[in-house]
Write a protein that binds this DNA or RNA. Sequence first.
DNA 1: GTGTACATGTAAAGTGTTACATGATTTC
DNA 2: GAAATCATGTAACACTTTACATGTACAC
Lengths: 178, 178
Amino acid sequence: MDVRTLCLGILALGDASGYEIKKMVAEGSFSFFSEASYGSIYPSLTRLTEEGFVTCEFFSQDKRPDKKIYSLTEKGRLALTEELRRDPGPDKNRSEFLAALLFAEAVSPDRIQNLVEERIDEHRMKIRSLQKLLDEAMSPASHFVINYGIAMQKAALDYLEHHQASLIKKIIAAGPTE
Amino acid sequence: MDVRTLCLGILALGDASGYEIKKMVAEGSFSFFSEASYGSIYPSLTRLTEEGFVTCEFFSQDKRPDKKIYSLTEKGRLALTEELRRDPGPDKNRSEFLAALLFAEAVSPDRIQNLVEERIDEHRMKIRSLQKLLDEAMSPASHFVINYGIAMQKAALDYLEHHQASLIKKIIAAGPTE
DNA sequence: GTGTACATGTAAAGTGTTACATGATTTC
DNA sequence: GAAATCATGTAACACTTTACATGTACAC
């Protein structure tokens, strides 16, 4: 899903500024299955405005930088519906962690153990932050999606905790790293 | 992880042609956490050869197109080790499916139900194909990684199966799509 | 005969990230 | 006084996909 459609979808849930969209993607309900940087969000919003999919209202704020709040137009809503009518593509998961494990022959067992333990901590933190998000989530869909994220994080955590020891043992048994 | 490093890592597991690398990424043990197209693999291999990280041997085959088999050099192995010494970045998961669910307000309950059911089938297929891969996997690391993939697929499948009904119910209860 | 697998490669186009630029206010 | 939060935006660069180009062999 490109940033353009992502913006359209987020604006379908409520008006927002570019800054707020970035926050939702980086820390909100979207954080575990999408990504976008300012460098792609701001140009997208400009283009969406030019094309009439969103409108933009300017707000001067006291003690804060000015703000531009974007709203979805009827045309924008239609475009989104049209986009969502098509089958979603398959999930794309990229993991440098798993790649590093697979290339383990070039890595020492100590290093592997370390990587796995760090990863376990990260999963624990991620679970806590998702559980916090759950309290703020309002729609049934966002509950469902956040709980999905928690379930996945727990599954990864569980797998690592239960198989880490045997992995290290086997790597050592497979012989000293050439 | 860029395609360059991915090629380096795959070649660390054994010599291969560009075509074979593509297959490993598209269907092999790498399939659920990385991606690369011919358009990025071939240029990467050319550059890696120019820079001395890999060497290339040409094979004429009977009844088959010619083949170029690449091998990692000592310099390449060092570069890979160096790369793997650095902390792996966080996983990146992108899911059009979850995005579609979150934008559910713009989608009918029937459509959602359909999407979830299709997704359940896909998970089942993916699990089967990963289990097949398991039979061919040799190193302890690849076993570990493939089993990790299976565990994640099962967790997603399980979550969808157990929460699908309540999601649909709640969406309907939340009122007809505006 | 039609499609898939084998096999390599290029060029254009698209998409995205990173780093930069700017600047007030609040929190530690 | 340093760092984070709020807030928008551009430009250079990196990376990737898509579409094209080419051709044999085998299975159905």
